[in-house]
Amino acid sequence: MRPAHSKADDIAAALSAHGLVPRGGFAFTSSDAPPTGLSGAPAKSVLLVGQAGAAPWPHFLRWLEKQSQPIADPLDAWSREVIGTVAERFAARAVSPSDRPYLPFQQWAMRAEGLKPSPLGILMHPQYGLWHAYRGALLFEDEIALQEPRDVIHLCDTCLEKPCLKSCPVEAYSADGFAHETCLAHVRGQNGAPCRTGGCLDRNGCPYGTDYRYPAEVQA
């Protein structure tokens, strides 16, 4: 149990101004090899930051319109800027899933929110389905009060039809994994327009979390 009002609540309020939300966290233990915090000392706790649905999209577009020059990977750049500003306010080190060397974001996410991968590899959330993302994390050199991860039902275990594995015209997802070259060739080819404009057909085939499904322009 965390107190009625905490540092995590203040961080959540700061993130909400950009359509982002805290995505759970935990304190590192003696068996972990934590990354360094702001000063270079080992971090003691991590709070993941991400989105539920497409809430950040309007904020991102307004930011993008203000940029005077084209930016490579603009969504990553926006995420770094926003989460970095919040990190400065709360004396944390901001890190990104695309930072190198790569940090174990998916393992952190499973540990923080009790999630498991779907057949597509995206973590299945009991409320958001496949329509969520992790945009970064805040590393603290002290332990901050965080809610304990709760037990969640893994919806993929109860889904018998698995439409997420039956919608792709080139069967890019299978028990053997993701055939990314096959996927790219199809998406870039003459028959790939539905995927290019409306998003992954397998992902859209999932029946869960549809209220949070990204609009077509976001998926494109």
Rank of each mutant, 00 (worst) to 15 (best):
E88R: 14
G129Y: 04
L20E: 00
Q107C: 07
F60G: 11
P97Q: 03
G84D: 09
V86T: 12
A13Y: 01
Y134G: 02
Q106T: 14
F105W: 07
W63L: 05
D32M: 02
A4M: 09
G37M: 08
A91N: 14
H59W: 07
S30Q: 12
K7Y: 08
E81N: 06
E81M: 13
H125F: 08
R93C: 06
L48P: 07
V49C: 13
A41W: 00
Q69W: 03
V86I: 15
G19M: 02
F26C: 00
V82T: 12
S79W: 07
F90R: 07
A8S: 13
Q67H: 07
V86Y: 09
K7M: 14
W57I: 02
V49R: 07
S39P: 09
V21T: 13
H18S: 15
D32W: 02
G121L: 12
A52P: 04
P22Q: 06
W78K: 04
S45D: 03
A17K: 14
P126D: 03
Y128V: 09
V95P: 07
S16G: 10
P35L: 04
A55C: 08
S79E: 07
L115E: 02
D9Q: 04
A72W: 05
H18I: 04
D73C: 11
R93D: 03
P117L: 11
P74D: 12
G19D: 01
W108R: 00
R93G: 06
A41S: 12
A12Y: 01
M110E: 04
P104E: 03
Q67K: 15
A109S: 14
G121V: 13
Q107N: 12
I122M: 13
A112R: 05
Q67E: 12
G53W: 09
R100V: 06
G37I: 12
E65W: 10
L64T: 04
Q107R: 14
W63M: 06
D9E: 05
L61M: 13
M124W: 04
G84S: 08
R135P: 11
K44G: 11
V49W: 05
A109K: 01
D9M: 05
P34Q: 00
A43S: 14
A91K: 11
Q67A: 10
M124A: 14
P42W: 05
L47S: 05
Q107V: 12
Q127W: 02
F105A: 07
L38M: 12
A109V: 02
G121C: 12
Q106N: 10
W108N: 01
P56V: 07
A13T: 05
V86M: 08
P22C: 03
A55K: 15
M124T: 09
G19K: 00
D73I: 10
F60W: 13
D99V: 10
Q69S: 13
D32P: 00
Q106K: 14
K44T: 00
P34I: 03
E65Y: 09
G24F: 06
I83T: 11
F60M: 11
T29M: 01
R23K: 15
A17L: 14
R135N: 15
W57E: 15
S79G: 15
P35Y: 06
R89W: 02
G25W: 03
A43N: 07
A87Y: 08
V46P: 06
L15V: 08
S98W: 07
W131G: 03
L20W: 01
L103S: 03
L48E: 03
H125M: 10
A72I: 08
F26M: 01
A133G: 15
K116S: 15
P119M: 10
